[in-house]
Simulated assay, not measured.
Amino acid sequence: MKQLSDDRSAHQVAGDLDAMRALMHDSFRYVDSSGRQFDKETFLDQFVDPTAIQWIAQDTVTFDETVRGDLAVVQLLLEEKFILGTNAYEGRFWMLHLYVKEDGVWLWQGGQATMINEG
């Protein structure tokens, strides 16, 4: 799972839409730290497409996984830096990612992000 999670991050930061699309389940759902909901295509448009977002860094601080059969739950603490539109963002986010195995292939089913307030 760690390698798959690292690959997901690398594809996202690189803006590789095709690689990310192949990694994501068709019924993908994601809730960002502002509570906005995304399906597969809207996530790709907002958080991967280099015309919308410019990633500076997405670094894994902590990683924990629980795998039960064809379901994996991954908990991450990520440090992220990116430019979205005209605004620059930097922060730590706790992420919960779900992966499902279909036909022997792990796919990113979705997840949820929470901004960590360290003040």
Rank of each mutant, 00 (worst) to 15 (best):
M1C: 10
M1W: 08
M1G: 12
K2A: 07
L4I: 07
L4T: 04
D6R: 11
R8A: 14
A10Y: 01
H11I: 01
Q12R: 11
V13S: 00
A14R: 00
G15H: 02
G15I: 00
D16Q: 01
D16M: 00
L17D: 01
D18I: 02
D18G: 01
D18V: 04
M20H: 04
R21P: 03
M24E: 05
M24D: 02
D26E: 14
S27L: 12
F28T: 08
F28G: 06
R29T: 15
Y30R: 04
V31D: 08
V31I: 15
D32S: 05
S33C: 11
S34Q: 15
S34H: 14
S34D: 15
G35P: 03
Q37H: 13
F38M: 02
D39A: 02
D39W: 03
K40G: 08
K40L: 06
E41F: 06
E41W: 06
F43A: 07
F43G: 03
D45Y: 07
D45C: 04
D45H: 10
V48Y: 02
V48L: 02
V48F: 03
V48C: 01
V48Q: 04
D49M: 01
D49H: 06
A52L: 07
A52M: 12
A52Q: 13
I53P: 02
Q58R: 14
D59S: 07
D59Q: 09
D59R: 08
T60W: 08
T60A: 10
V61C: 07
V61F: 10
V61R: 12
F63R: 05
D64S: 12
E65A: 09
T66I: 10
R68D: 15
G69I: 02
D70C: 04
L71E: 07
L71K: 06
A72S: 10
A72F: 06
V74D: 08
Q75T: 12
L76A: 03
L77Q: 10
L78Y: 09
E79N: 12
E80P: 08
E80I: 11
K81I: 10
K81E: 13
G85R: 01
G85S: 03
Y89D: 07
G91M: 02
G91L: 01
G91D: 00
R92Y: 10
R92A: 04
F93C: 00
F93L: 04
W94N: 14
M95C: 15
M95P: 01
L96A: 07
L96S: 09
L98R: 03
L98G: 08
Y99K: 05
V100E: 06
K101Y: 02
E102V: 15
E102A: 14
G104Q: 05
V105K: 12
V105S: 10
W106N: 08
W108D: 14
Q109S: 10
G111C: 00
G111K: 00
Q112V: 04
A113W: 04
T114V: 07
M115D: 07
M115F: 11
N117H: 13
